[in-house]
Simulated scan of single mutants.
Amino acid sequence: MGRAVAAEGEDRRRHIVISARRAGSVDVTAIAADLGVSKETVRRDLSTLERRGLVRRTHGGAYPVESTRFETPLAFRTGMHAAEKARIAAAAAELLRDAETVFIDEGYTPQLIAEALPDDRPLIVITASLAAAQVLATRPRCTVLLLGGRVRGRTMATVDRWAAQMLSEFVIDLAYVGANGISREHGLTTPDPTVSEVKRQAMRSSRRRVFSGEYSKFGAVSFCRFADARAFDTIVTDTRLPQREARRYALLGPEVLRV
């Protein structure tokens, strides 16, 4: 009897994970109606899935945690937390200051940072992101260096040792770095080792480093660790990250901006 109940529970939790990955999130009320169980049962399932590192709980639901087996494509990310990402990108771009050479990471928020960079001054931009390169290449005062390597279709960015090796030849004033997750215990993580290699080299090659990401990244942990939160000068996120949590990250060293 116990095994039958356990199997039913595992089937239910598998359905929740699949639904969250397909839609980007799940709502407790909706998933309870879909499964024909109580909302309390769904909440317990979400707690179990969160302990396993498969979802992150939110008020009234959950969203999937990216892993080596699951990662949201770039096209999907453009519609998620769009207003917050735009504010974060604008604030991050203001941190350019006197930098003349800049690294732009792969991902949608770094792409928005590229769009927000000023076009009234000479700038050399090194990037793995085809989208960021396309945004900046037409600017007359901007020189774009696109890292070579295998193009990763999910994020439309170059990865692998070729990209990391080319990046190792530069000394960069400022790096805008993203991640799939950031935590005080495990640092900054991403699901793919080839992506992690490029990010790790960007950290080594830069004098100043800025992490930009919406609140949902905080506390999330993926497969490949590439940096510690202490390695960043500034962390830019949105106001949904609680002030008390922002202070905990600030105690590690970075300035934390909530916008």
Rank of each mutant, 00 (worst) to 15 (best):
M1S: 15
V5S: 15
A7G: 13
G9Q: 14
R12E: 10
S19C: 09
R21H: 10
A23R: 14
V26S: 00
V28M: 09
A33D: 13
V37R: 10
S38Y: 07
S38A: 12
S38P: 04
T41C: 02
T41D: 08
L46M: 11
S47Q: 13
L49E: 07
R51H: 10
R52M: 14
V55L: 06
R56F: 01
H59I: 11
Y63N: 06
R69A: 13
E71Y: 04
T72G: 01
P73C: 09
A75V: 14
K85S: 09
E94K: 15
L95H: 04
R97V: 11
V102W: 09
F103W: 09
F103R: 05
F103K: 00
F103D: 10
D105F: 03
P110D: 03
R121P: 05
R121M: 07
T127R: 07
A133W: 09
Q134I: 07
V135P: 04
V135I: 13
L136W: 00
C142W: 13
C142N: 02
T143R: 13
V144P: 08
L147K: 07
R150S: 11
W162E: 09
I172A: 05
D173T: 11
Y176M: 11
R184C: 05
D192H: 09
V195L: 05
S196D: 02
R200T: 04
Q201E: 15
M203N: 03
R207S: 03
R209I: 06
V210A: 00
V210P: 00
F211L: 11
G219W: 00
A227C: 04
R230K: 10
F232I: 03
D233V: 01
R247F: 04
R248N: 08
R248K: 15
L251H: 12
L252P: 00
P254W: 08
